[in-house]
Design a protein around this nucleic acid. Structure first.
Lengths: 137, 137
DNA sequence: CTTGACCCTCCAGTAACTGGAATCCTTATG
DNA sequence: CATAAGGATTCCAGTTACTGGAGGGTCAAG
């Protein structure tokens, strides 16, 4: 399989697949012409990575999951712990986003949004003390 | 005011303030010794930026908000629209995170998490078709 | 006069790609 | 057989919003 076939079947951009090879997540064979030659195993791995990324796992998490996935004798406990950690992180982000959403919704409601210059949104940004931000987004 | 005073009062790291100057968000004066000399106005701007960043606005959004903030004759409608767009983006991210959370929670529940190798989490990653990801995180 | 706390600039690195340039290979058509 | 389109390759640069560190100047206290 050439790279565009794999890209289509795995649902990933061609560029992304080359990048995954560059960082060592997949190691496709090479044909005589220098083209990458993917087999079904490569395709499965890429689809696996795509799915894990879609669930918000980092690329390094994907590397760990892939290693666990290929170790047929591993304990499920390790996978479960990695997933639980990830879940906790998602919960933290959810809480933070919900907090933001509430504040912004309140501000949008309070703002007339007309041609006058009065704007509670800017007033709020001016008046409120800075609150430590974390890494949501 | 020296940079560390401003950093403390605005709640931002020193490095971040230097960075904000570099990208033109603030333009503090300079003393004879080359040190940045911030006035109250600079401090207010930095606190304003910090607050907007804490609410998830991008740095470029902050630049726009700051411009609107300093334009005393502007209509509140423009600020409101920027905020509404941002709110819509947050809602999109919230929905996506909630979807992820549900899937992961289901998987964690299904996984025994013991010394045996069977693991529904890895099974799921293997079996499910890739779903287009967006830019949450 | 030295020490330590600040300050400066510049360079490099982070995550996870994405875009583009220049070039090579394959395949179909005239 | 020439050529043109489409796909492949590599390499370089850029994105976001900082963060860390090296190497060196400045200031206030003792």
């Amino acid at each position: 399989m050439n790279i565009s076939d794999v890209a289509r079947r795995a649902g990933l951009p061609v560029k992304t697949i080359r990048y995954y090879e560059e960082i060592g997540l997949v190691r496709p064979a090479r044909g005589a012409n220098g083209y990458r030659a993917f087999d079904e195993r490569d395709l499965h791995k890429l689809a696996f990575i795509g799915r894990a990324r879609a669930l918000g796992f980092s690329v390094e998490d994907c590397r760990a999951l892939l290693r666990l996935y290929e170790d047929t004798g591993r304990a499920s406990a390790e996978v479960r712990q990695l997933t639980r950690d990830h879940l906790a992180e998602i919960d933290r982000k959810l809480a933070e986003l919900q907090q933001m959403r509430a504040t912004l919704a309140r501000l949008v409601d309070a703002c007339a949004g007309d041609a006058r210059p009065d704007c509670p949104i800017l007033d709020d940004l001016r008046d409120h003390a800075f609150q430590a931000r974390s890494d949501v987004e």
